[in-house]
């Protein structure tokens, strides 16, 4: 799914954020990236979503060498991933529903598909009742779930979360990771950056530690999945999808991927 080959990143000001990093993350894995502030964790994520370019080395995402990827194809790469930020990055003047719908609208989804899909995803993260609320009216944990819903709404095969629990209290943090774990069980690859060691230890996932831009340790994929769970969270998650099973979205990841490919081909055809 993701492979870093001898990747180094030196920022224009001379800061060496990553140094000859080699990482291999398989499809369906759940990986924690840990390390002190300034270790290079965010840089690692930015390279995956092609927000930054590596200074040397190559990066493969979904069997594509993204280091050589053309600029205009980058949007289609990003459609295959959902991104969650520490500061939620929700639009204050939009409702919860519109914040999530935004991610679909700006890639040209049909209004009917948007409506179905957003309701489904809000149910999945347990925010069905908050659809018409504004972000400011929600707790930190709820806001992060909206942000997660937005990351999920286009049915990505990869979720990238940069310190998703950095701004919320520990109990809520646990719920968020638990939710990500559930999503991971459906086959979505998940990469979570965090420096909360306690949280990491509660889940038996692969942990990669970065220090000073280099890989310090890598537990590798665990042979056995974590069985630590919060009862309440599990109940919630178990119930909701059934409730709305009827409204299961008509936007499958296959359809989206096909559309993305078609769009790329259209553009290529137009260029010639």
């Amino acid at each position: 799914m993701i492979r870093f080959n001898n990747v180094s990143k030196v920022y224009p000001n001379g800061t060496r954020a990553l140094n000859k990093v080699n990482i291999d993350i398989q499809k369906g894995e759940f990986v924690f990236i840990v390390g002190a502030s300034g270790a290079g964790k965010s840089t690692f994520l930015k390279l995956i979503m092609k927000e930054e370019e590596p200074t040397s080395g190559s990066i493969i995402v979904n069997d594509t060498n993204i280091t050589e990827m053309k600029r205009r194809k980058v949007p289609y790469l990003r459609r295959t991933m959902g991104i969650v930020f520490q500061d939620f990055r929700l639009i204050d003047k939009m409702t919860v529903f519109d914040n999530v719908a935004f991610a679909m609208r700006v890639i040209g989804a049909r209004p009917k598909a948007v409506k179905k899909r957003v309701h489904y995803i809000l149910g999945l993260v347990g925010l069905k009742d908050k659809a018409q609320s504004r972000p400011a009216e929600l707790s930190g944990g709820e806001q992060q779930r909206v942000s997660l819903a937005r990351a999920l709404v286009n049915n990505p095969s990869l979720i990238i979360a940069d310190e998703p629990t950095g701004n919320i209290d520990p109990e809520m943090s646990f719920e968020i990771i638990e939710l990500l774990n559930e999503i991971n069980k459906q086959g979505t690859t998940i990469i979570v950056v965090t420096h909360e060691h306690e949280l990491v230890h509660k889940f038996k996932n692969r942990v990669i530690e970065i220090q000073g831009g280099e890989i310090m340790s890598d537990t590798g994929a665990p042979t056995e999945k974590a069985d630590v769970k919060i009862e309440i969270a599990e109940e919630e998650l178990a119930e909701i999808p059934e409730e709305i099973a009827e409204e299961i979205p008509d936007v499958s990841s296959e359809e989206l991927n096909r559309e993305a490919l078609a769009a790329i081909e259209d553009e290529e055809a137009a260029e010639e």
Partner: peptide, 17 residues
């Protein structure tokens, strides 16, 4: 600009932005 940054991060094409 905030919305634009989100648009780009969720994969909106420049055309769409």
């Amino acid at each position: 600009r905030f919305e634009i940054s989100i648009m780009k991060s969720v994969g909106a094409t420049n055309h769409f932005v």
